[in-house]
Design a protein around this nucleic acid. Structure first.
Lengths: 233, 233
DNA sequence: ACCTGAACACCGTTCAAGT
DNA sequence: ACCTGAACACCGTTCAAGT
């Protein structure tokens, strides 16, 4: 009945390469390297081909299209996330460590921010995280759908908090940060809302990195408290 | 000291058009229409020009580059969000209504999901929401930085939860959904984690829309509980 | 003040052809 | 089995030139 089937690299049977030629692994590794260096916009099939001393279109033998390549690269990001064993540290600490680890990994690979939630996360490394995260929330005492709901809630929070951080780093990273310039920008944008301007603490713009870290923690603690409340009998 | 200044349509002085020619408003309206119909990938300067019976490059008189156009369109999305008055319904209900409204508006303009957090939200409509949201959390009893932290936490959650929903709708929307096919996909992807497969309730794939709504509510209630806890003396 | 078309430097992807 | 180059149908943006 489906017009076109659900498609993902992880469902498609890969080509079985006996020995010669390139391998998917080295292609993906090169792609990740390029992405880390130049960002999502910096990865083109032509550039990646050149990097591998191959013709631009040779990659299409290993991969159906660019999105598959991105799916593969994306899964590498999940590989770097640490999910502690809840039996050792307790579910709350485990969850907290995972949340911080996700944030850190994503900030280290800013291009992943544009992929999160947009690409299916069905790769082996994503699955490993999903598995261990389920264990975490089961250990906490969640049952049935709530195990998945708790997981979705956590990742939604972390991703939703981290994605704007990437954007901030991108606009600010390659320039000198000027707190006063930033304050002036905000003041101008919010000129129509004097009440807000008056109540806002402009000190937030002194050390944005520190404030963002505080903010992340505030939200995370709130979320964990809220989840804990779900467990009460 | 800054190499290049922070840039956003909302900081730049727009051209003062006396009367003739096109207006920014109609250009933005046409852009939003195109985006709603064809998605982010469907908006090109050439297509938008054609839609306005203009040369492809005429738009560059009104807008410095495509990103500015997107900033303008993006702000229109914020215009549709309803932020209730906390004095009338209480902060918890107000927050809840806002969260649902955000989710609904974003799902109605799926292209906005790709822009959220990536583009500066300094437009007048975004500012209106920010202002009213601050009021909400101040009414709740938050003070100082916590007012902003609570706001960031809420939007992070809503955005992080909604973005994957858009992706889901995009892959599934134009085809018939096949629950069994989906279950088979998951089973295949998770084959290496039998424990997870055994514990997962495959009923989630029967009616994904309903489950996602449940999930959104679960996370939102948890988050609100957690925020409420921050207010305890 | 506003609009145009040509041009530049890119894209992803297809495909017939090579080895 | 693997790789290639040419070709197609696109992009965003610049810029000199028009009115």
């Amino acid at each position: 009945m489906s017009s076109k089937p659900f498609s993902s690299v992880w469902v498609r049977e890969p080509r079985k390469s006996a020995a010669p030629g390139r391998t998917r692994e080295e292609i993906v590794a090169a792609a990740v390297e390029l992405l880390d260096q130049e960002g999502l916009g910096g990865l083109s099939m032509r550039k990646l081909g050149a990097k591998l001393d191959a013709g631009a279109t040779s990659l299409y033998w290993y991969v159906a299209h660019k999105d598959e390549l991105l799916e593969l690269a994306y899964d590498e990001v999940w590989a770097e996330m640490t999910v502690p064993d809840p039996d050792e540290v307790g579910w709350r600490d485990a969850t907290s460590v995972l949340a911080y680890s996700m944030r850190e990994v994503i900030l280290r690979h800013p291009w992943s921010g544009d992929l999160i939630g947009r690409l299916p996360a069905l790769g082996p490394h994503a699955m490993r995280v999903a598995d261990r995260m389920r264990r975490m929330f089961k250990a906490a005492g969640f049952k049935g759908f709530d195990v998945d709901f708790a997981g979705s809630t956590l990742t939604a929070y972390v991703f939703g908090m981290t994605i704007p951080e990437i954007a901030w780093n991108a606009t600010m990273g390659d320039r000198d940060y000027d707190a006063d310039e930033m304050r002036a920008t905000v003041r101008k944008a919010a000129a129509a809302h004097p009440e807000m301007l008056e109540s806002i603490d402009m000190d937030v713009y002194d050390d944005p990195d520190a404030i963002r870290a505080l903010c992340f923690d505030f939200g995370l603690v709130s979320l964990l408290d809220g989840l804990e409340r779900r467990l009460a009998p």
